[in-house]
């Protein structure tokens, strides 16, 4: 079974974010990056499926040079090869533009499943996967918590709201968006890191896939980025830890009366 995993690189979770000079995005200077969380789980699930059923895991990621680091991490964990979409034309705040680039690069690939994260940790569109499915004419299931390949397709467990679940059967090829927590993540081993050095990372530019300027036009775009205004007035308790702790306990006891 061949599985494509769409990986996005995002600023590390603990990053202190600042608004950029153009006030339309964050200031990207001095940030460190990592794989978007759900994508790390998608990759892990693909590797586990491969270990059980054989086949190939192909990772694909669109983004600047720094993205290579996440691609290498995926290869070190056990992915077989990678496609890196490097053209600045692909960079977009419109999920359809990203999906179009991915679709272009995957047109000539043979796969049974595509995994994406259920949503990215930066834009959080929760769209790129499904738009890609629509463009490639694939059936889809979202927020997947278990994957069972069967003779005639794939059976997946979807998470629904408030503790409900549902199994859904799909013919393959299909696209699944993977939820965090579907499995337990592995670390790359030294052996894996060494082996990754020999693995192929294919670079793809716009011209390679017939992606034109008009394909890159954004239908939606951020006009302004800003920190949310706090609507509730939080009483921030200042002081050294011991002092703040004493003040808080007093408030809880006498003002909030929670004991």
């Amino acid at each position: 079974m061949n599985i494509v995993v769409c990986l996005k690189q995002v600023p590390k979770k603990d990053s202190i974010l600042r608004i950029g000079a153009d006030q339309k995005w964050i200031d990207e200077r001095d940030l460190s990056y990592e794989m978007s969380e759900a994508d790390a789980y998608a990759l892990e699930e693909a590797l586990r499926q491969k270990e059980k059923h054989g086949g190939e895991v192909i990772v694909i990621s669109s983004g600047p040079e720094r993205v290579r680091q996440s691609i290498k991490e995926a290869l070190a964990k056990g992915a077989d090869r990678a496609i890196h979409l490097t053209d600045p034309l692909f960079n977009s705040g419109d999920p359809a533009v990203i999906a179009r680039a991915l679709a272009g690069a995957l047109k000539n690939e043979k796969f049974d499943l595509i995994f994406t994260g259920l949503q990215s940790d930066d834009y959080g569109f929760a769209q790129v996967g499904l738009i890609l499915a629509e463009m490639l004419g694939l059936p889809s299931a979202t927020i997947v918590m278990e994957v069972q390949p069967e003779d005639s397709g794939v059976r997946v467990k979807r998470e629904l709201e408030s503790g409900w679940f549902q199994w859904v059967k799909l013919p393959m090829p299909a696209l699944l968006t993977i939820q965090s927590g579907i499995n337990q993540l592995r670390y790359a081993t030294l052996k894996g890191i060494m082996a990754a050095k020999k693995k192929e990372i294919k670079e793809v530019k716009a011209a390679d896939i017939g992606f034109t300027e008009s394909d890159a036009i954004s239908a939606q775009s951020i006009q302004r980025a800003y920190f949310p205004e706090k609507t509730k007035r939080t009483e921030i308790i200042e002081g050294k830890p011991a002092e703040a702790a004493a003040k808080l306990m007093e408030k809880l006891r006498f003002d909030a009366r929670v004991f």
Partner: peptide, 30 residues
């Protein structure tokens, strides 16, 4: 530790700081 964390938008009381310092102090106080 992040004064901009969205949780402070709904909190009644907040302490901005390292939980590894604040939680032991709270335990002692309690």
């Amino acid at each position: 530790k992040d004064a901009e964390a969205p949780i402070f938008d709904i909190a009644d009381y907040g302490i901005v700081g390292d939980l590894f310092e604040i939680v032991p102090a709270l335990i002692a106080e309690a």
